[in-house]
Amino acid sequence: MTVRTHAIMARVPDWTYAGMMRVAIFLVFFTSARTKVEGFLTLKGSTFFLFEHEYALPFISSTWAAYLATYAEHLFAILVLAGFATRLSALALLVMTAVIQIFVYPEAYTVHLTWAAMLLYLVARGGGPLSLDRVAERKAAGRAD
């Protein structure tokens, strides 16, 4: 690769990474959450079946796990997309990814590693300049002056 090509590629702004990762993570978790409900947030019978028989988490009842996971996927995916409480929301989804990897689908490590890489970036760097977090930071800085 030439120096000129490298310089052109290096001009891709960092905020594009955060934005694309926020959209990708939103699509993964929100799409998954929507398959577990009918209507707005009514859990399907099949969701309870999955949590009882296929997912079978060891330290929590399958009913509680179904509700918590489904609602968490909805909430944290939306917050990540909006860039609001991005670091906390990404951390929650990272923990969920670890639980899925360890207890549910350990053979799917390549997919989970991809999610984890994006989520770790968002935990470390936040949602970027096109996020509600940044708007809140600017407003707080304006009040501090």
Score class of each variant (00 low, 15 high):
Ala141Ser: 14
Thr35Gly: 01
Phe29Glu: 15
Tyr121Lys: 00
Ala92Trp: 02
Ile78Pro: 03
Val95His: 07
Ser46Tyr: 12
Thr42Asn: 09
Val123Ala: 09
Thr5Lys: 11
Glu107Asn: 06
Phe51Val: 00
Gly142Leu: 09
Tyr109Trp: 13
Leu130Met: 13
Thr86Ala: 11
Arg22Asp: 09
Arg125Leu: 12
Ala116Thr: 13
Leu130Cys: 11
Phe40Cys: 02
Ala136Leu: 13
Gln101Trp: 05
Ile102Tyr: 13
Met1Phe: 04
Thr114Met: 09
Arg87Cys: 06
Ala117Glu: 09
Leu120Ile: 13
Tyr109Lys: 07
Glu38Trp: 14
Ala7Leu: 12
Ala85Gln: 08
Val12Ile: 14
Asp14Ala: 14
Phe84Arg: 08
Gly126Cys: 11
Ala18Asp: 13
Ala144Gly: 06
Val28Ala: 11
Val123Cys: 14
Leu93Pro: 01
Thr31Gly: 14
Asp145Leu: 12
Ala56Tyr: 15
Gly45Asn: 13
Phe48Arg: 00
Trp64Tyr: 10
Ala92Cys: 12
Met118His: 02
His74Pro: 02
Met21Arg: 08
Ala33Arg: 09
Leu27Gly: 00
Phe84Ser: 06
Met96Ala: 14
Arg22Met: 08
Tyr67Thr: 01
Ala82Lys: 05
Leu79Ile: 08
Gly19Tyr: 00
Thr5Pro: 03
Asp14Met: 02
His6Pro: 03
Gln101Leu: 11
Phe51Ile: 00
Gly19Thr: 12
Ala65Tyr: 03
Phe40Arg: 13
Asp133His: 03
Trp115Pro: 01
Thr42Val: 11
Lys36Cys: 11
Met21Thr: 04
Phe49Glu: 06
Thr86His: 05
Glu73Asn: 06
Lys139Ala: 12
Val3Arg: 11
Leu120Val: 07
Glu54Gln: 15
Gly45Tyr: 13
Arg34Trp: 05
Leu120Ser: 06
Gly39Trp: 01
Val3Glu: 12
Met9Ile: 11
Val3Pro: 04
Thr2His: 07
Tyr121Ala: 00
Glu137Tyr: 05
Ala85Asn: 10
Leu93Met: 07
His112Leu: 10
Arg125Met: 14
Leu130Phe: 14
Leu50Glu: 14
Trp15Lys: 02
Ser61Val: 04
Val12Glu: 10
Asp133Ser: 04
Thr70Tyr: 02
Val95Ser: 11
Val111His: 13
Arg87Asn: 02
Leu79Gln: 15
Val135Ile: 12
Ala117Lys: 10
Arg87Gly: 05
Thr47Met: 09
Phe48Cys: 00
Trp15Phe: 14
Trp15Ile: 12
His112Val: 06
Leu50Arg: 10
Val3Ser: 11
Arg11Lys: 14
Arg22Phe: 03
Ala140Ser: 09
Leu132Gln: 02
Val123Phe: 15
Leu120Phe: 12
Lys36Met: 12
Ser131Pro: 05
His53Gln: 11
Thr63Asp: 13
Ile8Leu: 10
Ala124Ile: 06
Ala77Cys: 10
Ser32Lys: 07
Ala90Cys: 08
Tyr67Val: 09
Arg87Ile: 06
Pro129Glu: 08
Tyr67Asp: 06
Phe48Gln: 00
Ile25Gln: 03
Ser62Leu: 04
His74Gly: 04
